[in-house]
């Protein structure tokens, strides 16, 4: 009865949500069934051919692995560094706490492309980082954007820097919701710093951590701007990730169907993350 009464109030939002969310999804899925034929300039029905091609495509497999490495390492590092930062910012002994909290937010307030351009400048062969390394006596500093073994990690560093503020603020909010008595009791009982963090703090803010990890995993997996500006997926596809690869096919080669097929694989991967999250929350 209650639900029936609520329906008219929810309906407008549901309709808008369907329009802006479901409609593009259905459009995207329907695109997968078509391939662009350049000789005629027409999109022709090709069934599931785009998916068949996808799994024969070595660059796709490489981009998929890169995306997993990119997401797992970025989110893990973001969480670890942010946890330390948030603990520090939560400390009553830290002077100028408010100023530090404001400063921490700055990278998050900058547009992704601006951050990427700044990092690109820093990582250039003759950029400030390599100039500093040369000054310190490193004869052959790494070619951050050119070395295929380094390029993806360079992008990951920039991504971590950009993601830290949000994660820090979220963890800080979780820490501030903790009762001081619990921590004091742990201290009286002789728990070490590490024991307190692992056995008391983390379990206490588990729900906050879960939502942070889920959101950051989705955002990082879908992230496009940093890799695009820093390396464009190169050299020789070494830092290619799935969103960039989908863009390359959809816009660079005008194969929207193939780009959509990559998008659907990404959606399935992210759905599994969301399912894991929901299962944990329901428990």
């Amino acid at each position: 009865m209650e639900e029936k009464r609520a329906l008219p109030f929810v309906a407008p939002a549901l309709i808008i949500l369907c329009f802006v969310s479901l409609y593009p999804l259905v459009q995207g899925i329907s695109r997968v069934l078509y391939s662009f034929r350049a000789l005629t300039g027409k999109n022709v029905y090709s069934g599931l051919q785009n998916f068949v091609l996808l799994f024969r495509d070595s660059v796709f497999v490489h981009a998929l692995l890169n995306s997993l490495v990119w997401t797992v390492t970025s989110v893990a590092a973001m969480f670890f560094v942010s946890f330390l930062l948030a603990t520090m910012l939560n400390s009553r002994h830290l002077r100028f706490r408010r100023a530090f909290r404001t400063v921490t937010l700055i990278p998050w307030a900058l547009p992704g492309v601006v951050v990427s351009l700044i990092w690109r400048y820093i990582f250039l062969s003759g950029g400030p980082l390599n100039t500093a390394l040369s000054g310190l006596g490193v004869t052959y500093p790494p070619a951050w954007l050119i070395d295929p073994h380094v390029a993806l990690w360079t992008c990951i560093v920039a991504n971590i820097w950009m993601g830290i503020p949000f994660v820090t603020i979220m963890i800080l909010a979780g820490l501030q919701s903790l009762e001081g008595d619990i921590l004091e009791a742990a201290a009286i009982d002789g728990a070490s710093y590490l024991q307190t963090q692992v056995r008391i703090v983390v379990p206490s803010i588990k729900k906050v951590i879960l939502i942070i990890l889920t959101l950051e995993s989705i955002w990082t997996f879908n992230s496009f701007d940093i890799v695009f500006v820093l390396t464009k997926g190169g050299p020789a596809n070494a830092s290619m990730t799935l969103p960039l690869y989908a863009y390359t096919w959809a816009y660079g080669s005008q194969q929207a169907g193939y780009g959509a097929a990559i998008g659907i694989i990404m959606l399935l991967i992210l759905l599994s993350v969301v399912v894991l999250y929901i299962r944990e929350v329901l428990q």
Binding site: V59, N237, T248, G252, S253
Partner: peptide, 15 residues
Amino acid sequence: MFGFFGWEWQSFIPQ
């Protein structure tokens, strides 16, 4: 050729 840029950057330049 239609799609020259795509061909160039996806199949030729990486090599």
